[in-house]
Computed example of a mutant assay.
Amino acid sequence: MAVTDLNPSDNDQSFRCTGALTIGRAGSTQRELDAMPDGMTIDLAGVDRMDTVGAWLIHRTQRDRGAHIVGESAAVKALLEQVAAADHPVQVRPDLRPAPTRALAELGTWTVEVGQTLFGLLGFFGATLVGFGNVIRRPKRFRMNAVVSSFDAVGVRALGIIGLMSFLIGVVIGQQGAVQLQQFGAEVYTINLIGRLTVRELGPLMTAIMVAGRSGSAFAAQIGTMKITEEIDAMRTIGVSPVEALVVPRMLATVLMMPLLSFFSMLTAIIGGGVFCWVSLKITPATYAMRISEVVPLHDLDVGLIKSLVFGFIIALGGCFQGMLVEGNSEEVGRRTTNAVVQSIFMVIVLDAVFAVFFSSIGWL
């Protein structure tokens, strides 16, 4: 317990502590210290045990109110010194660095993250190739049911939204092209614009963006949720490869379905453009179809389908890779799902630009 003594000769008060000065007495001791005047003398000769909370009370009183400590034992003195050494101000909000420094730091952080992501994606690509090789060597490990289910999720269920989007894109291309070409009396060339642009570029590209937002995000969310619930760890425990069971079926289904979806998108966009030309430009469907067959070379279709194969591979790879990176909690699932969509769309656009340069260089104009 704590005892307060008053020395009448010099009118100086002393605070004498006895027994254990621990967390259990922190409240009462603090109230007694608050009742004492500044500059008091704290006598610790009777203290036989003190913990960190008690030492902090004594140190804070000495620091803030100029108290004098007397009679402390060697152990108590050592504890008070440790508390005093640990008592230093902490800056909760660090000072803001200059804007150029912050910009460089953020650029450096982003560069490191991009490098780590590309390195991890390359390693995951290698693991996927190993998984494909294992399935080829041991066909019994091929999960046909999972592939068919992915066919339905990636392809069949996407037909409606892709068809509507492509039809409207065909209408928009026709309308915008006709507005510009009518100034020169060349509105018939709207058919050329619709045919080549949808088959060569917009059909595969818009389909890839739609599949990335729809199926790529689903892959990341599904695999990420399985990681959080430790289903993937359970698969490894029983000897099932997560790459073979989860990644290979999704990637195979996406790669095979993307050319079909792109071809469907091309046809729907051409039909949308044809409807516009029939209604607004009075070009009959027969004339429109004949003109399309004349102005769209076969290699444009080859270009679109080749792009679709690569786009499908990139989308499935990015979605599964981000799903495998999920750790911690459900918030991580949302973040990785967003990363999967953003990275897939970014890579699709970059590869589309690369393909444009490549096919132009080999004469497929």
Results as ranks from 00 to 15, higher is better:
T254Q: 04
R143S: 12
R141H: 13
A253K: 03
V199R: 06
R250S: 00
V148K: 11
I169V: 15
I223C: 01
R138G: 09
R250P: 00
Q180A: 13
G155Q: 04
F151A: 03
M258C: 06
P139M: 01
F264P: 01
T207M: 08
L246T: 03
M257V: 00
G177M: 10
I136K: 10
Q176L: 15
P204K: 09
V199M: 04
G155F: 07
Q182S: 15
G239I: 02
Q180M: 13
L246V: 02
R236F: 06
L252E: 01
G126R: 12
A253C: 08
F142H: 10
F151S: 09
E187V: 12
A212P: 00
Q183N: 13
L197Q: 12
A208Q: 07
V154E: 05
Q182A: 15
G216S: 05
K227H: 07
E187R: 14
S262Y: 04
G160R: 09
L159N: 02
F142L: 09
A218G: 02
G163V: 00
P139W: 08
P242I: 02
I136L: 14
R236N: 13
Q176E: 13
I238Q: 03
I173C: 10
S150F: 10
I238P: 05
Q183F: 13
R157N: 12
M144I: 15
D233K: 08
V171D: 08
R137A: 15
R141S: 14
L168H: 08
L202P: 08
R138W: 10
S241K: 04
R138D: 14
F132E: 01
F264S: 07
T128D: 00
F124R: 05
G123N: 12
S149K: 13
R157C: 02
I136D: 08
E187P: 11
F264E: 04
V188G: 15
L202R: 06
F184Y: 14
R236A: 09
A146S: 15
A153R: 13
A146F: 13
I209F: 02
L168I: 14
E231Q: 15
L168N: 09
G239V: 00
G133D: 05
E201M: 08
A220H: 07
T207P: 04
V211P: 02
V255A: 11
G163R: 02
T229C: 07
M251R: 11
S150L: 07
V171Y: 06
F124P: 04
I232M: 07
V247T: 04
L193Q: 10
V199S: 09
S241P: 06
P259T: 00
